[in-house]
Amino acid sequence: MHRGKLILLQLLVGVLTISVWEIGTSVPIGGSYLLPPFFFSTPVDVALRIIKWFVEGTVWRHLWITLYEAMMAFIIGSAAGVIIGFWFARQPVVAAVFDPYVKMINALPRVVLAPIFALWFGLGAASKIALGITLVFFIVFFNVYQGVREVSPTILANARMLGMNDRALMRHVYWPSALSWMFSSLHTSVGFAVVGAVVGEYLGSAAGLGYLIQQAEGVFDVAGVFAGMLVLAAFVLVIDGLVTMAERRLLVWRPAAETHSL
């Protein structure tokens, strides 16, 4: 599809949604509103709230804290996932021993860990980072594990025939293969880092986007809740755009069909 046309259609969807919202909250149908403003706020109120946040500058601190927590969770979780994924893939015995435990921990809904982490690491950033790590780690871990184990046997045979020893194999074959799998899950892992931060904030904190939303909910300030969600959504869009840019640079060697945009 033509790019200009695509953007036009995307805008149209947004405008339509907001129009339905506006009409539902401001035009009474048969004496009652389809979307009572008390429960749904109105587009204008939400927009005004967002503008107020940015003009007063209070939102920046929350944005920054969420960004910081998500980034730390992503970096630490990815690093641990790469190292342990690599280790397990190269040591099948270790992998076999830990297999049931990895599955057990991965099956655990992370939300239940949030109160424990708050207890252990306090209400500050550390507990949110820990929650994010538990999400990011498993995505990166499984991808790297897969990436190392699924190197094509022909490529491995070729590498050996070209004179590679174990160290060279690691550097020129296993490592790039594992990284490519990790990068292909970049959107998911970055997304989960943000989810970990926001959920952690929501369940107990003094700052961040999750805190902002939770505070607004506490006083039935629906405009505040919606404004918080919109800021969060825009925030995720920006980060996703940055990830796409990074991906284009890092995965130039991949055929275009294999890189997905979501």
């Binding site: 094509s152 022909t154 490529i155 045979a157 070729n158 590498a159 025939m161 004179g163 020129h172 074959v173 790039p176 293969s177 490519s180 060697w253 991949r254």
Partner: peptide, 16 residues
Amino acid sequence: RDAGYLFQADALFPWK
């Protein structure tokens, strides 16, 4: 070590 092997399947390193 004296042999060079040209494989039937694609054996180039796709990331290089």
